[in-house]
Write a protein that binds this DNA or RNA. Structure first.
Lengths: 341, 341
DNA sequence: ACAATTTATGTGTTCGTGCACAATAATAGG
DNA sequence: CCTATTATTGTGCACGAACACATAAATTGT
């Protein structure tokens, strides 16, 4: 049995127009009428027919922009695929989509782009925000203007963004630990190279990793934690010094970039494939090193979903008025070996 | 710029009705008219507005049935979630969905169910087919009657099913090898327990696994391959004899069920956590054993996609007349540790 | 009390397709 | 040549929601 506006109107002894006004919370309806209609709507569990909705309001399409930096590369392809699929699914409902790619990780440029989108009058934005005051203020301004914003891949705090779609970094850290624990002998010494202790996502990875260490039965020991700022040169130096300081070192967990430097150092000191390595993401240097067997596992974060879900969330909110049911949507913690790519 | 049937009609100097006839390949259009209209359609890259399409033809909805056996359990929840999400996405286009659960792996019952669906007049069926002549014949009969069928999770050969959605088992086998190679010392002896050498999917897993052995640089050796018919008792006996015959055994790859028996045997001979184990799927006994550390990795196969994709494929074919672009859709080879669940 | 407003409610039309039916053109049969 | 038949083409309406506009009821001011 199909519930339509017309049917509700009949049951409530009012016209279609009145039901429409109630549904859209428009003025000029007496409280009693409104309540009566609302009750019937709830009783019959009315849900609007999206096809009809799209058809009738297709003159004024929804516009959603996806903003992403093209730097983290093999990633971006998957993100774009996710965005494209979501669009294909939703365009029939009157969604217009624009993908804006900024070529730098520059906060000013991102703000400039956001301001342009604001002027253009987009309804929603999915963005990988750069964590800076400039961007934060800009995002909050757009949100106050009624533009809906979802962050993905990397979050930005103190904003009223709808929600965030990205990895559960603590879980990723726990998984990294369990992988290392599996591939090194019991009691082994392992070390951690973290991008920056200041960055939330890397902090979380470390937190998750260390939490596992604290558990009973943990059979490896962490001997050192160093920052490499995602830099190959720093990784290189750090790994070289590790090999000197800890000749018994059996594993390294590297939370971010700079894997090439690590690979070079390990090869030079003849420890490649002897010291086991767990890294993150499936960027090109990681894939190469996995192929060579120098990196044993890398933890992926499902860029496809990071592309598709924000678009869907924005659409559901703007078009269907369905609020996202949580503030953080975690994409997978995907364990990858070279063969599993 | 939006291309509609009306616009095409104007450009071709014909009526909407004629364009409609051309679009649906209906009779009574002169070849010249048809060609003219077809040319314009192609030139303007007309794509029908799905919303309008759904709206106009929502009296005669498409009906798709999903048939699955509830045996492989935690799985089924995810499959159902996938089905539900696909439905939620497509119901606005006039899709009706029915999920039929058969409680046995009995071929006759499955045939009975299929015949019922046939009489009922469903448009499409997504099914985990039981590999038997009975089912094969039945499926082919329904297909000849015009019912579209997609298989998932497990395929059935010599049928004209639209396509199959399931795991790439050879890849899974390769991944299993790489996991074992990572977690046992170089040169270790490992053994394989396969469900049945007669079942295609398990064969493929073994093929993938052995292919890796053949590669240069493979640093483990396989000492034994045995069938356990998914039975715990057989696993138990096999593992016990392994431990006796190969005191140096360091790893086991088990391609199917019967993991509990394996776990029991390992514990009894004091080899639990000493012999590393890679298994398949995330059924309850596997999860328990992963928690205990007895199974180190299990390879999942993305039941969510196995639920959602067949529904989408059927819908696209029946509603939009879009043929699937391949015959086999591989769902992921998901490496799982207990922490990554 | 009556016109001018404001507030509440009702109606008609639009979106793009699909399909039933109406109208016209072409052909066949006598 | 005219009618019966068939092939071809054209038109109207329905689907369900949104919105502009039309009407009716209630309120205000004088």
């Amino acid at each position: 049995m199909k519930i339509t506006i017309k049917k509700i109107a009949e049951l409530a002894n009012v016209s279609r127009g009145t039901v429409d006004r109630v549904l859209h919370d428009r003025p000029n309806v007496t409280p009693e009428t409104k309540e009566k209609v609302l009750r019937i709507i709830q009783e019959l569990e009315y849900t609007p027919n999206l096809a009809a909705k799209a058809l009738s309001s297709n003159t004024k399409c929804i516009t959603i922009s996806v903003v992403l930096a093209p730097d983290f590369n093999p990633f971006v392809a998957e993100i774009k695929k996710g965005v494209a699929d979501a669009y294909e699914e939703l365009r029939h409902f009157g969604l217009t989509l624009e993908v804006e790619v900024i070529s730098t990780l520059n906060a000013e440029e991102q703000v400039k782009l956001l301001s342009r989108l604001e002027k253009k009058g987009v309804d929603g934005i999915a963005i990988v925000p750069i964590d800076s005051e400039l961007v934060r203020d800009c995002i909050n301004r757009l949100i106050r203007k009624g533009i809906k914003i979802v962050t993905f891949n990397s979050d930005i705090f103190n904003t009223e963004r709808l929600c965030f779609v990205g990895q559960d970094n603590e879980k990723a850290g726990r998984v990294a630990f369990s992988l290392l624990e599996n591939i090194v002998p019991a009691g082994s010494q392992i070390a951690v190279i973290i991008s920056s202790l200041k960055l939330k996502c890397h902090q979380s990875r470390l937190t998750g990793f260390m939490a596992m260490l604290g558990k009973s039965g943990a059979c490896i020991q962490t001997v050192s934690i160093d920052e490499n700022q995602d830099k190959d040169e720093l990784s290189y130096d750090i790994v070289k010094s590790y090999c000197k300081l800890y000749p018994q070192l059996k594993g390294i967990y590297i939370t971010g970039g700079g894997v090439s430097g690590l690979g070079r150092a390990l090869s030079e000191v003849g420890k490649a494939r002897k010291i086991k390595v767990v890294s993150h993401d499936l960027v090109d240097p990681v894939i190469s090193l996995m192929k060579e067997g120098i990196i044993n596992f890398s933890i992926g974060q499902n860029p496809y979903v990071q592309g598709s879900l924000p678009v869907k969330i924005l659409f559901n909110y703007i078009f269907k008025n369905e609020k996202p049911d949580r503030e953080i949507y975690n994409t997978g913690v995907d364990i990858k070996t070279y063969e599993a790519l």
